[in-house]
């Protein structure tokens, strides 16, 4: 446990992740895109959260900012009760090594390393003991037990994705971010991966934050956050695939309505943007 902060937005010791009014803008004049617009959220430890929203709504940006891979323009991020702002890149890297796992949308496997080498690389870089048996066991779990010595270029997209998942799990991070971890997988492998993620939450008390477009995948989570145009627009607890699918269908209309609302009432913020509060479902 980490000591609690004394700042105004001090996170609870039981919180794995807290974002406070995080905004991020890309591009310059003319091409300016607001990827995240004043996002605040808090996720308790040992929870499995799915993040959904249309393509380009800022899901990857949210994950990158939350994991300390990208710097928000404004706002604060706390992981495991520790503020990320104001750390040097090296400090951040060391912090990430210890507590954060990340499955990238584009996998980002190193092309010169084999499956097993890719999986154990985070441990090597962190100077931690490399437990080959554990690495093999994790790879076995994602169905790659027979592929340990293959290079990424010799694997299918889905297989590469599963290596990326194994790599993120092998360090036993307290918070695991996964950007569409089942995007390249068939139904069967996707179910295996989702069960694995669920297990890491239930059995090992890890916190998982997963971006997905798939309502079935989202139904494995404890809660779903909906993102549109860089803003949190809703939350659903104990989601079922059907409820999520319906909700997504309405999301477009909801965004349009919120935009209209915003035009009328300028000071709109916390009521919709704070995700911690459950909302009545539509």
């Amino acid at each position: 446990m980490t000591g609690s902060q004394t700042t105004r937005n001090a996170p609870e010791a039981t919180e794995a992740l807290r974002l406070v009014r995080v905004s991020k803008t890309y591009g310059g004049d003319g091409t300016r895109v607001t990827a995240l617009d004043d996002v605040s959220l808090a996720l308790p430890r040992g929870t499995f959260t799915a993040i959904m929203g249309p393509s380009g709504s800022g899901k990857s940006t949210l994950l990158h900012c939350a994991a300390g891979l990208d710097k928000p323009d404004s706002g604060t991020v706390f992981v495991d009760g520790q503020e990320l702002r104001g750390r040097s890149e090296t400090e951040l890297t060391k912090f990430r090594r210890e507590r954060i796992g990340f499955v990238f949308q584009q996998f980002n496997l190193l092309p010169t390393l084999t499956v097993l080498q890719n999986t154990t690389l985070p441990l090597k870089l962190a100077g931690r003991r490399v437990d080959l048996n554990r690495a093999r066991a994790v790879l076995e779990r994602v169905g790659l037990g027979q592929r340990l010595d293959h290079l990424p270029s010799q694997l299918s997209g889905g297989q590469q994705q599963r290596v990326a998942i194994a790599r993120a799990l092998v360090t036993a991070p307290s918070v695991l971010f996964a950007d569409e971890p089942t995007g390249a997988l068939d139904t069967h492998s996707a179910r295996d991966v989702l069960t694995l993620l669920q297990e890491s939450v239930r059995v090992f008390g890890q916190t998982v934050v997963m971006v997905t477009h798939d309502p079935v995948a989202a139904s494995y989570a404890d809660a779903v956050l909906f993102l549109a145009d860089g803003r949190l627009v809703g939350r659903m607890s104990n989601p079922t695939a059907q409820a999520v699918a319906e909700r997504l269908t309405y999301l477009g209309d909801e965004v349009a309505r919120q935009r209209r609302q915003q035009r009328h009432q300028v000071g709109l913020d916390a009521s919709v943007a704070t995700a911690g509060r459950p909302r009545k479902e539509i």
Binding site: T90, T93, R96, R97, F102, N108, L110, L125, A126
Partner: peptide, 15 residues
């Protein structure tokens, strides 16, 4: 890009 991927997995500048 290769350096970037290594850094994302936890390599420091020094490494």
């Amino acid at each position: 890009r290769e350096f970037g991927q290594q850094r994302l997995v936890g390599a420091t500048h020094r490494q």
